[in-house]
Design a binder for these strands. Structure first.
Lengths: 114, 114
DNA sequence: CCTATAGTTAATCATATGCTTAACCAATCA
DNA sequence: TGATTGGTTAAGCATATGATTAACTATAGG
């Protein structure tokens, strides 16, 4: 098992490319073959395969081959790791913002009270 | 203004590095000087500056210099773009999952009924 | 069996990333 | 005013990334 930092590295890195996000957007609608993922992308099939590898290494996508067609699926829980990190940062930031707001109110009260 | 795809590229790319995430985690607690951000990181100050540039270009952090100290802040709305993209994917995926479940229930009913 | 389809591997290449050191600038402060 | 502190710029370098083409494998269909 990878440590959390490396998992986040791989996840965010995987999400940082528009072709890979397009593949995930397609897969969020349901499973698809490699050639189906490749179809809207303006690049060679080997390039698509490399992107697929990145997505699989990040644990965002799984795939299995039946006959000569490889079917890809989005991996449910994987996105939640990234989502969780972002949520945590926003929660911290908002908490700090709230405290700041409270502090500013205190100052204002202090001024009006003398 | 940048188009949305490029903004997501920059955002996820910025989040893909552990040093930059550490900087954001620190900044989520409140503003900090460059040297304060650098302190826990095992790299040179110029390297930290480069990471800071990446975060600023992604719109995740703002900074201003007063005297000789540059104070950095997390930029509120920036993380929500990335969060929004992830949420949308999860929503789609879950909707599909629900439809699949429904479909499987239909099949099961069909079997038991005839 | 032959051919077309779907995917895969390998080699190569240009550019991007992440880091370093050295040199430098501008506020403080003794 | 001279040293220190905090930051900045520039140059260089190793590795990673994203793409290509060419060559190859394996299944499906006529």
């Amino acid at each position: 098992m990878l440590n959390q930092s490396t998992a986040l590295d791989l996840t965010f890195q995987a999400l940082a490319d528009p072709a890979r996000r397009a593949m995930l957007e397609r897969l969020a609608q349901g499973p698809a073959a490699v050639s189906e993922l490749a179809q809207p992308l303006t690049m060679s099939l080997p390039a698509v395969l490399q992107h697929l590898t990145v997505l699989e290494n990040a644990g965002l996508v799984t795939s299995a081959k039946a006959g000569r067609v490889r079917t890809c699926q989005i991996a449910g829980p994987a996105l939640t790791l990234a989502e969780g990190w972002l949520n945590a940062r926003r929660a911290e930031w908002e908490a700090r913002f709230d405290r700041l707001e409270e502090y500013l109110n205190d100052i204002k009260d202090g001024e009006s009270h003398g």
